[in-house]
Structure formats: structure tokens, C-alpha cells
């Protein structure tokens, strides 16, 4: 019994400690971000990596999510003759939830893990120490560009995912299931609000912060060689994904 409490207690302390370290990293990243020079090149490189290179996977995810959503919604709505609402359902779900969340999860898997692996390797091969010795702060050089890229690129990816998701839904709804296209679009435009889209984008920026911060944190504080790098990568993906889903609830509760 005491063992259990002890284990839980230790876990809790570890969690709080780790959370504190993440916040500390965020704070130092924020501090280093505003100190000159602005490392635009490094930022652009990360933006390419996080944003441009994730485009294909995000488009695929978005399009098929929208498509399958249309299919499922159609079967449900047909029961009471509300097929015309398929479009609005797809659009609402994409802009408010699925666009931001799925995009972030995909990018976590792609880029968040890569951040952890890259920084982890740099840590265990002393490259991060080398940066320190060359009077280049690795937080500014490595962490800040990744976080900036995450925060800036996720909304861009999300709006594209929203769009192709709606498009995918349209193709299935209008093309395959033969819902009247005029009604489909009109209902969608009528029900979706600007706020839905923008709140979705705000959420995705928060998720971008989470996934890049967690990826960098896990990588930056890696210990224990190749195995440690592997562990850091896995943990980064798990922690970032879970944090995204949990924070999604609170962000949604706060916004909508």
C-alpha cells in the first residue's frame, strides 16, 4: 500500500519536475527569441521542414478525413432525410476539431519526433556542448527556430487541411453520394462561422507550440547514447500527442 503511494508520489513529483523544466525551456526560448540576432535562416529551414515538407502528408490526411466524414455523416443523416447537412458537418468538424488536431498529430509524428531525434543525437555526440563552447547559445540556435516554425507553420498547414478536408467531403458528398451541390455548399456556408475557422487556427498554433516544445525538450535533455535518443523520440511523440489532445479539450472549452 505504502509502495503504491510512494510510486504515485514519485511519479507525480517527476511529472511536476518535468513540467517545470519544459516551462523553463519555454521561458529561456522566449528570452532568447527576442535577443538579436534573429536567426532567420535557421527559422526558414525549420519552417521548410515543419511546414513545406509536411504538406503532402497533411493534404492526404485532410482529404481522406473529410471524405470519410462525409460518408459517415451521410449514412447517419439519411435516416432522417438531412443529407443536405453533410457539408456543414464536414466543414464544422474539419475547421473546429479535426483540421487542427489531426494536422498537429501528423506533424508530431513527422517533425516532433525528428526534432527530438536530431537534438538528442546532437546532445549525446556533444554537438550541443560544442555550440556552447563556440558562444552560440543552443537554445537560440536550435530550440527557438523549431518553436517559431511550429507555432507559425501549424496554422498554415491546418488551413490547408481544412480546405482539402472540405474538398474531400464535397467530392464524396456531391460526386459520389449525389447530394445537391448547391444545397451542400449553401448549408455549409450558412452554418460555418469565421470564428470556427479562426479558433481552429489559434488552437493549431498552440498545438504547434506544444509539439515543438516537447520535441525540443525531450531531445535537448537526452541522456544515454543511441538508446536514449530512441527513448527521447518515442516519449516526445507520446507526450506531445497526449498533451495536444488534453489541451484541445481545454482550449475548446475556453473558446467555443
Amino acid at each position: 500500500m505504502i509502495k503504491i503511494i510512494e510510486t504515485i508520489g514519485r511519479g507525480l513529483i517527476r511529472f511536476i519536475e518535468e513540467f517545470g523544466q519544459v516551462m523553463f525551456l519555454l521561458m529561456s526560448a522566449a528570452t532568447w527569441m527576442v535577443r538579436p540576432p534573429a536567426r532567420l535562416r535557421a527559422i526558414f529551414k525549420q519552417m521548410e521542414f515543419v511546414g513545406v515538407n509536411s504538406l503532402a502528408v497533411v493534404i492526404l490526411t485532410g482529404a481522406f478525413t473529410g471524405a470519410v466524414l462525409a460518408l459517415q455523416a451521410y449514412h447517419g443523416f439519411r435516416l432522417f432525410g438531412a443529407e443536405s447537412l453533410v457539408g456543414s458537418t464536414v466543414a464544422l468538424a474539419m475547421t473546429r476539431e479535426l483540421g487542427p488536431v489531426l494536422t498537429s498529430l501528423m506533424v508530431t509524428g513527422r517533425a516532433g519526433s525528428a526534432m527530438a531525434a536530431e537534438l538528442g543525437t546532437m546532445r549525446v555526440t556533444e554537438q550541443i556542448d560544442a555550440l556552447y563552447t563556440m558562444a552560440t547559445n543552443p537554445i537560440k540556435y536550435l530550440v527557438v527556430p523549431r518553436i517559431v516554425a511550429g507555432v507559425l507553420m501549424l496554422p498554415v498547414l491546418t488551413i490547408i487541411a481544412d480546405f482539402v478536408g472540405i474538398l474531400g467531403g464535397y467530392i464524396v458528398g456531391v460526386g459520389l453520394l449525389e447530394i445537391n451541390s448547391g444545397i451542400y455548399v449553401a448549408k455549409m456556408i450558412e452554418i460555418v462561422e469565421l470564428e470556427d475557422i479562426f479558433n481552429g487556427l489559434v488552437k493549431s498554433a498552440c498545438f504547434g507550440l506544444i509539439l515543438s516544445l516537447v520535441g525540443c525538450y525531450k531531445g535537448f535533455y537526452t541522456t544515454g547514447g543511441a538508446q536514449g535518443v530512441g527513448q527521447a523520440t518515442t516519449r516526445a511523440v507520446v507526450i506531445a500527442s497526449v498533451s495536444i489532445l488534453i489541451s484541445d479539450y481545454f482550449l475548446t472549452a475556453a473558446m467555443f
Partner: peptide, 17 residues
């Protein structure tokens, strides 16, 4: 950072980027 600008260091395992 300012102090380290005076330093150069070679790591045992080179630590190249």
C-alpha cells in the same frame, strides 16, 4: 556567452555538426 567568445575547444570525439 561573452566569456566563451575567448575560447576554442576541441572535443575528444570531435563533436562536428
Amino acid at each position: 556567452n561573452n566569456i566563451r567568445k575567448n575560447f576554442g575547444m576541441l572535443f575528444q570525439a570531435a563533436a562536428l555538426f
